[in-house]
Nucleic acid binder design. Structure first.
Length: 182
DNA sequence: CCTGCGATCTTCT
DNA sequence: GAAGATCGCAGGA
């Protein structure tokens, strides 16, 4: 994945993702149908769905299913392989470069992604601020999968979190924790 | 190392 | 009105 910023390109090698399957998936933002927020997920694959959560963070998905299916993949973590110096000023809390994009909100922050990029076509070539690259594929037998992070209820049964084992940029797994009532 | 909690606001019910 | 595809800090072991 490459993020083109005014200061230069940032390249990211994805190490952890989670899949969400639209109307069939209680864990998906698209489960209850199309809304203003999730409309990008119902559009063409290859576009980017960015949402804002917990009052301060952005997270980024790639739409994967055909139009109308609302299937998407949350980009949860990765290794910055180029332009790390451009991300450090936005990721001051990172104690080392492995933490620059270790988690979905950290990844979006490192790449400088916010809702202004919601709907961006990530397959549109070098003039796009965001592009999915065709790197060296990781063989499927070198990828582990398990329950998704932070997903509760019936959707929690799907082992749709995928990561590269022993990669230091993969975020720690945390089960869903209901928020304390005020 | 680990656990608990506050921040802060959009979104849908 | 309440919960949320989270993170970072404080405090204790």
């Amino acid at each position: 994945m490459v993020r083109r910023t005014p200061d230069g390109p940032i390249e990211l090698r994805l190490t952890e993702v989670e899949a969400y399957d639209g109307a069939n998936d209680p864990g998906s933002h698209a489960y209850r149908g199309r809304t203003a927020r999730n409309s990008v997920m119902f559009g063409q694959p290859g576009h980017v769905y960015v949402y804002f959560t917990y009052g301060m963070w952005h997270c980024m998905n790639l739409v994967c299913g055909e139009e109308g299916r609302a299937s998407a993949v949350l980009l949860r973590a990765g290794e910055i392989t180029e332009g790390a110096e451009l991300t450090r000023e936005r990721r001051l809390s990172a104690r080392n470069d492995k933490e620059l994009a270790k988690g979905p909100a950290r990844l979006a922050t490192a790449l400088g992604v916010d809702r202004s990029l919601n709907g961006t076509d990530a397959c549109a070539g070098p003039d796009s601020p965001l592009t999915v690259l065709h790197g060296t594929p990781t063989p499927a037998d070198q990828v582990l999968n398990g329950p998704r992070t932070g997903v509760s209820g019936p959707g929690g049964v799907h082992p749709w979190r995928f990561w590269i084992p022993n990669d230091p940029t993969v975020s720690p797994y945390r089960p869903h924790t209901p928020r304390r009532r005020t």
